[in-house]
Design a protein around this nucleic acid. Structure first.
Length: 178
DNA sequence: TGAATGATCACG
DNA sequence: GTGATCATTCAT
């Protein structure tokens, strides 16, 4: 039986959560239709100091969900055409989230880009600030897949050059090499 | 390498 | 209120 990831899973160090999400499943259910994929790529955005994080400039209407409870969705619209999905981590009041950048579908097809998977799973702003749970039609679960440690790779995050040399170089992107 | 395309944020 | 920018993708 798959185990749905709850608040306790997300209320931990953001980099640990980002790493542990590899091999877990992102599940989207609309009506009777269910689509899911194994997470293959994530990025950690943590704290008040991370210049790459949207929360760096403090709490705003957009980023307040990052300051909220762990296990909630942070979905935002960018470049005038793309939705990106994160899951909030750490305790209430501390801004942090993990961006889901890639998943592998049941049929083996790879969705290697944060906006590709949201498009395929029909994830949009209606899921912003919603708890990741069956009730909302979007959740994460552990199906018992074991990830060998030597297949987990770390690198700098993608598309964050604006954060400056120090913060853009932080190795907070995690992905599977297989 | 650059266009698409609109929400968000800083500034004044 | 205005203008720059963007946690991207796809075609040229």
């Amino acid at each position: 039986m798959p185990k749905i990831l709850s608040e306790a899973f997300f209320n931990r160090d953001t980099e640990i959560v980002a790493r542990d999400l590899l091999g877990k499943f992102l599940v989207r259910e609309i009506g009777k239709k269910q689509v899911s994929g194994m997470i293959t790529e994530t990025e950690a955005y943590d704290g008040f100091e991370d210049k790459a994080s949207h929360a760096f400039r403090g709490k705003t209407l957009r980023t307040e969900v990052m300051f909220g409870k762990p296990g909630y969705g942070y979905v935002y619209f960018t470049y005038g055409m793309h939705f990106l999905v994160n899951v909030v981590t750490r305790e209430h009041g501390y801004p942090a989230a993990v961006l889901i950048r890639g998943i592998k579908l049941e049929d083996g097809k790879l969705l290697d880009g944060p906006a590709k998977l949201t498009k395929f799973l029909a994830i949009d702003k209606s899921l912003n600030k919603k708890k990741a749970a069956k009730l909302t039609g979007l959740w994460l679960e552990d199906r018992g897949v074991r990830i060998a440690k030597n297949t987990i790779q770390k690198s700098a995050r993608i598309g964050v050059a604006y954060a400056g040399p120090v913060w853009s170089a932080k190795k907070r992107r995690f992905y599977l090499s297989i």
